[in-house]
Design a protein around this nucleic acid. Sequence first.
DNA 1: TATATGACATCTTATACAAGACTTATTCTA
DNA 2: TAGAATAAGTCTTGTATAAGATGTCATATA
Lengths: 233, 233
Amino acid sequence: MNEPLYRKVIDKIVAQISTGELLPGSMLPSEMQIAAETGVSQGTARKSLMMLEQLGIVRREQGRGTFVTARTPESSLFNFFRLRQPDGQMIRPELVSQEVTERPALPLERETLDGAPMRVFEIRRVRSLRGTPSIFETTVVSTIRFSGLDQRAPLPNTLYVLYQQSYGCIILRADESISSVLANDDTSQALGVPPGMPLLCVDRVAFDIMGRQVERRRSLCRTDTMVYQVSLT
Amino acid sequence: MNEPLYRKVIDKIVAQISTGELLPGSMLPSEMQIAAETGVSQGTARKSLMMLEQLGIVRREQGRGTFVTARTPESSLFNFFRLRQPDGQMIRPELVSQEVTERPALPLERETLDGAPMRVFEIRRVRSLRGTPSIFETTVVSTIRFSGLDQRAPLPNTLYVLYQQSYGCIILRADESISSVLANDDTSQALGVPPGMPLLCVDRVAFDIMGRQVERRRSLCRTDTMVYQVSLT
DNA sequence: TATATGACATCTTATACAAGACTTATTCTA
DNA sequence: TAGAATAAGTCTTGTATAAGATGTCATATA
């Protein structure tokens, strides 16, 4: 029982969000209300809320309130889409084609995806940047957690908004492993580039608010006109 | 005068660090002392210190004190060296060769590097991972801010420790732009790989504690046995 | 329509006490 | 007496609470 009070308040709020009791975009109770409900002082409730803001789980605005982070197409792109023009300007990718298939989970997918699903949906998409097909993307999610996803075509440009709105799944973190590869036949055909062109291979695993791995994604990207940008601290 | 008190305290401490009045690794005055010196309460001093910790500028330890972040070879690699084994394990790069030359600054370098230097040092290094030459790295810094750098051979594996210890320059942030390229003749010779091999091209600009751009670096990396890993939030 | 007001939110600052880390003096033991 | 174990004291930061300032917005009022 050595856990500090503010931690218990954090856990309680996170639980409320993950069960859907608090919906993305909705306003949390005020500091005073949270304090009263949890039996702590307003200052302690505030400390909890500040840490939740720091974790990216809520957003606070003086005079207005505290709100559960909602994945909008904008925030989704800003946080998780790292391809930019060389001058740093954002690019908005457009969807060129997509297809959703169901198949058995590979051993790696079964081992790592939350719920150890036997079957998965595979979403293949080609996205273009400023008119040029530039990204060949393969996304894998559990058929259990995202049941009926294949019925929802056409899928939106930003899947994370769909995950949130239709499945209550809030993506908060993603780990990416990047390597340099040569375009193979499939990829060169999908993107319309010559085989052997150097591409960026971005392998992503995405985690929800509880830290569960809910998505695996591989993106093959042209980087002749844009670059993958990231800030290290 | 709408700036909150804790902000002023932060600015004062950052200034003291950047002038060398507070050295990396040294202990800051206690919360009580800072409060007395700056005319605020201990709680306000604490808020400032907590934000400085959050920014990575100081490290706090209960019962011991608050210390200025010191760049060690370990922290330097952990924070700024993103190449990892596919399983996520860290790799420690070894230095294979290096040469330092002085040359006129390119227009881009003169425009962006702090102090608009007319001349720069260019540091060319080949680094190997587990015995295999894997990174061909070209680093550019101002001859003004880092005067005499060319006399300091051999340079250490982690330059940021040298910047800090010999020039009082603390690197806190770096922006990287990543693209996929084919090895050209120079690079393939330096790394001992066939020309046309896909390589990761990592362009970095590094910033000091005051947000000044102090270094530009291009790294060409093999990614056949390791990957560039990063976490998005 | 423009302005003032009040309810209510977070933000800023202040204070008290708890807990961890060292130092130092004391006590016990060989 | 020398040396190790122990305990007290005093540093440090961590946690909890409270009061007043400030920002936001809806609504009443001129």
